[in-house]
């Protein structure tokens, strides 16, 4: 009965139009399953047997990507409940706790973000210790380092959004660093020399920290700026770089192994 129903579905025109191959049971259809699916075709058709051992890859790159997807899904849902203004931000988060059914969204988002930072470090550690950055994978390692930096920036910009004491002061500590940028921060080395006719060009009202916070302190402008960076700009850049990163793994010969 169930088998008959299954066959009826698989022989229908709709199923056939979506999946161009038969059930992946033999070599040909299994290869087709990978090749004809836009998501799965990020994989090669065949991989080195030793490469997919868990003790070799630790699965950390995959887990990082999985957590990125978790962050996107929970993040979009959180955006429904959250307004990035000083008046509402904190109370929206409080309301999320008190009123939203199955209110695990923020927990999933926050712990997922912490876990993603840890997983990406462990992924880098594995790639280093297996020498997988060596030719022909040099460029992909560099893309990976940029992704690491962007992951930290994603987490950093998200840190401010709950608008509680922890958030505000962690960002204050972090963004104070920008004030010391050589030549671009008002308290940075050599900035005092950048002046025209005795008028300093780099001061608290236009330096690197001002650019980051859109103000001289962590206020409403900084909240909006971090929100946009966190929800739109950095995720877009990460997505593009991820596509390059995955595509290059395939092009550079799949999971690494002895030459």
């Amino acid at each position: 009965m169930i088998n008959q129903f299954g066959n009826w579905i698989r022989e229908s025109q709709i199923w056939g139009s979506i999946f161009r191959h038969g059930v992946p049971r033999d070599r040909r259809t299994r290869a087709m399953a990978i090749l004809s699916n836009v998501f799965l075709h990020l994989h090669p058709v065949a991989v080195r047997k030793s490469g997919i051992r868990l003790s070799f890859t630790w699965c950390m790159g995959g887990i990082t990507f999985f957590l990125f997807l978790v962050e996107i899904v929970t993040g979009v849902l959180l955006m429904f409940y959250y307004r990035p203004t000083v008046e509402y931000a904190y109370f929206d988060i409080q309301g999320l706790r008190a009123h939203v059914t199955l209110g695990l969204l923020r927990e999933l988002h926050r712990w997922g973000a912490h876990a993603m930072v840890i997983a990406i470090w462990l992924h880098m550690l594995r790639v280093f210790l297996t020498g997988s950055y060596k030719p022909p994978r040099e460029f992909n390692w560099s893309v990976g380092v940029i992704l690491l930096v962007l992951t930290l920036l994603l987490s950093f910009t998200g840190y401010l959004l709950p608008w509680d004491q922890l958030a505000m002061w962690a960002i204050t500590v972090g963004s104070n660093m920008a004030r010391a940028t050589p030549g671009a921060g008002s308290e940075g080395p050599l900035s005092a020399f950048i002046q025209i006719g005795g008028v300093p060009l780099v001061h608290a009202g236009d330096d690197a920290r001002f650019g980051l916070l859109a103000g001289t302190f962590v206020g409403p402008n900084a909240l909006l700026r971090f929100y946009v960076l966190h929800c739109v700009f950095i995720p877009c850049v990460v997505t593009v770089l991820l596509a390059i990163h995955f595509w290059r793994i395939r092009k550079d010969g799949g999971i690494s192994g002895p030459l």
Binding site: R30, I34, P44, V45, V47, R48, K49, S50, G51, G257
Partner: peptide, 11 residues
Amino acid sequence: EAGADDKVLVW
């Protein structure tokens, strides 16, 4: 990790 030719299908 030896066995570079020892490949398995991804699916």
